[in-house]
């Protein structure tokens, strides 16, 4: 038999704590009958739904109830940060370079693991209805793919698209593929780490800086919008004024200059630590499935699910997990006040 007194206890205890705090309520209340306990939990859940309080956790013997509604985790984010606003697609994992900090360990020896034209096309088609506002293609080095122009076209047909590249392969047939891409809807994001060759080449290989700079110039000359992204050790990310000045001389607008820290992922021996608890997800698709974030697309702990389609379900899954992580973090903060 359900114990209605539990609701009185809950209301009493909620009244003694500030909105936003939680109480843990024993739902066994002297009974070991599993059905009775389940009924008690159902009653508490019903009351919480109707009263504007949040049942944030349900255990076999107790429930955790937040006074008032849980804050809307997604509403608290900048609109651009809402998971699924940007969709990342790893077109392939092989690369002409072997960067020592590559977050997904790409190299000439890496298996291609291509996402494939069909899946990219279907993702692009499903993206906008699922709330995606921007598509981002990355690798590996996407220009190693013989059909990269088709992949890009299937994306730009639906949404503004960014294509990440090292900018070193704009020759011959690959240059022709570049020239077939939609300059109105495509931004090229080219990797360059320093204003002079030494630092860039030390991580990416001899002469890679020179070819990347040439690639930036070519892409600009071809009329593309070009972003430049630098990957730096975290301690150097604030010493970038000379580098930014150099990018200015190349014709890269300030808003197209991206500085990011090396992450301790993939081939990197050190770097900033990123976990699902600390990282706002950016839905990322590879040939293997759905991942939390592009920086961790080979980290098993950040694998979300194998099923890519429907894309809307995959995005919803990532959002659900994100909200759950944030709520758990909030509860931990309740338990461990810092002052």
């Amino acid at each position: 038999m359900v114990n209605h007194g539990l609701v009185l206890d809950l209301i009493d205890r909620l009244g003694r704590i500030p909105a936003g705090s939680t109480v843990t309520l024993d739902v066994m209340s002297g009974t070991a009958d599993a059905g009775e306990i389940a009924d008690n939990i159902d009653m508490i859940a019903t009351w919480c739904r109707a009263s504007g309080n949040a049942l944030v956790e349900s255990r076999h013997d107790a429930v955790v109830v937040r006074h008032g509604r849980s804050p809307d985790t997604l509403a608290g984010l900048h609109p651009d940060q809402v998971p699924g606003t940007r969709l990342w697609m790893y077109t392939n994992f092989d690369c002409n370079l072997h960067c020592d900090y590559c977050c997904v360990s790409s190299s000439p020896q890496a298996d291609r693991r291509a996402l494939g034209a069909d899946r990219v096309a279907r993702l692009a088609e499903e993206a906008e209805p699922a709330g995606v506002r921007q598509l981002i293609l990355t690798g590996g080095e996407p220009f190693l793919l013989p059909d990269i122009d088709e992949l890009v076209a299937s994306c730009t047909a639906h949404l503004p698209t960014t294509l990440l590249t090292n900018g070193m392969l704009f020759r011959g047939a690959r240059l022709e593929r570049l020239r077939r891409m939609d300059r109105e809807r495509l931004t090229l994001q080219i990797s360059l780490d320093s204003a002079t060759p030494e630092q860039h080449d030390a991580h990416r290989g001899p002469h890679s800086w020179e070819r990347a700079v040439a690639g930036i110039g070519l892409a600009l000359d071809e009329g593309f919008d070009v972003k430049v992204a630098a990957t730096l050790p975290a301690e150097q990310t604030h010493e970038v004024a000379p580098f930014k000045a150099f990018l200015g001389t190349l014709g890269i607008r300030p808003e197209n200059q991206v500085i990011r820290a090396v992450a301790h992922q993939g081939a990197a021996h050190d770097g900033i630590e990123l976990t699902v608890e600390s990282l706002i997800p950016e839905v990322t698709i590879t040939a293997d499935g759905v991942w939390w974030h592009p920086v961790s697309a080979t980290d098993a702990s950040q694998f979300v699910r194998r099923e890519i389609f429907p894309l809307a379900d995959a995005i919803a899954d990532v959002r659900r997990r994100f909200v759950r992580h944030r709520e758990a973090a909030d509860r931990a903060a309740d338990w461990f006040p810092c002052s």
């Binding site: 209605h4 609701v7 009185l8 019903t46 009263s51």
Partner: peptide, 14 residues
């Protein structure tokens, strides 16, 4: 208080 405890009609029958 009456409105608070009867949210979701959980007190029906009690």
């Amino acid at each position: 208080t009456w409105q608070a405890i009867t949210r979701g009609e959980i007190m029906t029958g009690a």
